[in-house]
């Protein structure tokens, strides 16, 4: 495993990332198959929720990943902002759509789960609301990258926003919990969370592992794509410049 400084060189990153991706993808598939088998066939149905509790195995790890990906963005942003590590900026940028997808998955499956549990597609439950706000944070972060042409400036501004958002996540989470306790005393989730039976833990952690390896594989692949795209843009820009100078001459 090379250290962070060596990975700042895109060439070296490429040499390290390309062979790693198949292994990570393989681990993803193996864990996903095992996790789905446990989740769908080899775990008990809930005595209250029945079979629909199986949505949890897709939903809960997605919610964990939503926060994990945002943490990845914030930490990469800090590394990129402080040490001007060029690949850290690329990692932050490419982690965002993956994290947003996990966040959307958590919201979507939460909504599907909510229909039989609450009788409504959406309840202004504290957790759902916080995850929805996290989704908006992702959108704002990605909007910064999209609106600035100058990649170096976009990287710095996006990094500042990611760090500000990260500092604010606990505040937002607390405020939503507060709001929820103010408006909605009887919630589906009890204080301290629903206690989970031990037999439900293996599929949960297998799925979480699968999501984690998927994130790693997808992140490395998108970083390679981004580096390649930048190289192409540079080459095309160079071609245009030479063409322009030829015209001038």
């Amino acid at each position: 495993m090379p250290n962070l400084y060596e990975l700042a060189n895109p060439e070296r990153f490429e040499r390290w990332a390309r062979p790693a991706i198949p292994w990570l993808s393989g681990a993803t598939i193996a864990l996903l198959l095992a996790g789905l088998y446990y989740a769908l066939f080899n775990s008990p149905a809930d005595y209250q929720q029945g079979e629909s509790v199986r949505i949890m195995y897709v939903h809960v790890p997605a919610a964990w990943m939503a926060l994990f990906c945002y943490s990845t963005i914030a930490i990469s942003s800090a590394v990129g902002f402080i040490w001007k590590h060029p690949l850290a900026d690329v990692a932050a940028k490419e982690a965002a759509p993956i994290g947003a997808a996990f966040t959307f998955l958590a919201l979507f499956t939460g909504s599907i789960w909510g229909k039989p549990m609450w009788g409504a597609w959406w309840a202004w439950d504290a957790r759902l609301t916080s995850v929805l706000i996290l989704f908006f944070l992702y959108l704002g972060y990605m909007a910064i990258w999209r609106t600035f042409d100058d990649k170096a400036r976009a990287a710095r501004l996006a990094a500042i926003l990611a760090m500000v958002g990260f500092v604010n996540i606990p505040v937002i989470k607390f405020s939503v919990d507060w709001w929820n306790s103010l408006h909605q005393p009887a919630s589906v989730f009890r204080d301290g969370g629903p206690s989970i039976h031990a037999s439900m833990l293996p599929p949960l952690f297998l799925m979480a592992g699968a999501y984690m390896f998927f994130f790693a594989a997808a992140l490395l692949q998108s970083m390679r794509n981004e580096l390649m795209a930048r190289r192409i843009a540079r080459l095309e820009g160079g071609e245009k410049k030479t063409a322009a100078t030829l015209v001038e001459q």
Binding site: F136, A143, I144, F174
Partner: peptide, 12 residues
């Protein structure tokens, strides 16, 4: 863009 950025931060 400002509205998108500022919305989540205004929630608390």
């Amino acid at each position: 863009l400002i509205s998108i950025i500022v919305g989540p931060l205004y929630i608390p």
